[in-house]
């Protein structure tokens, strides 16, 4: 019952994203505009580019995730669907998790798939590529979770977008530090396990606590 509701919601979100076409390409366009603009800005030196590559790819992933946040819950609030989440038989928390999962599928997965290519364009050493992909796999769900929380908190306001970035930025600092730390360590030939382990701990913490806070915030906003 719960699983069926969740997969129905995810399937609907994906179908919507695909039919909107252009919008679902936004994360990729974002990633590659960052990757192309940075060398033009700081110069084409391979050493410098390799040093800043992890940070750049991660910032692109963060921005791509931020872009889609404003409309994460808003259309559902406007047409009344959101209230049905609390009326129906499926627990609202599960639907919140499903919505966040589809947000992750739409904004993060394309970036993860194309990150190795982007990293090569910035001369990141090849041995750091698996760690880069792994750090994105562990870290981007946290971005979606925290971003979803910020979207839920600002849902009842009419100038959400500015607030959203102010709320997300402090909460995302540890993710950025550990993720880029892992990739930099791997690029320098060191072990990235400690960083990745901490990142995983953050993910577990976020998965357990954030949906609770998000549901509470959504609930307050539809009252």
């Amino acid at each position: 019952m719960i699983v069926r509701s969740m997969s129905a919601l995810i399937a609907r979100d994906l179908r919507l994203a695909i039919r909107h076409g252009g919008e679902s390409l936004m994360p990729l366009i974002f990633l590659f505009s960052v990757i192309i603009l940075i060398p033009l800005g700081v110069g084409p030196g391979p050493n410098l580019l390799a040093a800043i590559a992890p940070g750049m790819i991660w910032v692109a992933a963060l921005l791509a995730s931020l872009l889609a946040l404003e409309n994460l819950f808003r259309p559902d609030l406007d047409d009344g669907t959101l209230e049905q989440w609390w009326v129906g038989q499926c627990p609202a928390g599960a639907l919140v998790v499903a919505r966040l999962f589809s947000h992750w599928l739409i904004t993060a997965v394309p970036v993860i798939v194309f990150a190795p290519l982007a990293a090569q364009m910035l001369y990141l050493p090849a041995e750091a590529l698996p760690v880069l992909v792994l750090s994105l796999l562990i870290g981007t769900p946290i971005l979606s979770l925290v971003g979803g929380l910020a979207a839920a908190l600002t849902l009842g306001t009419n100038r959400g977008s500015v607030l959203l970035s102010i709320l997300v930025f402090p909460l995302i600092v540890p993710v950025l530090i550990f993720a880029t730390g892992a990739v930099s360590a791997a690029a320098d030939g060191m072990s990235a396990r400690a960083h990745l382990g901490l990142l995983g701990a953050l993910l577990i913490l976020a998965i357990t606590l954030v949906p609770l806070a998000t549901s509470a915030a959504l609930r307050l906003n539809i009252e």
């Binding site: 929380l149 908190l153 909460l171 540890p174 806070a213 509470a216």
Partner: peptide
């Protein structure tokens, strides 16, 4: 809503 944010902040 801001109280929820305060609680999220203290964990963070």
């Amino acid at each position: 809503v801001a109280c929820i944010l305060i609680l999220v902040g203290i964990v963070n």
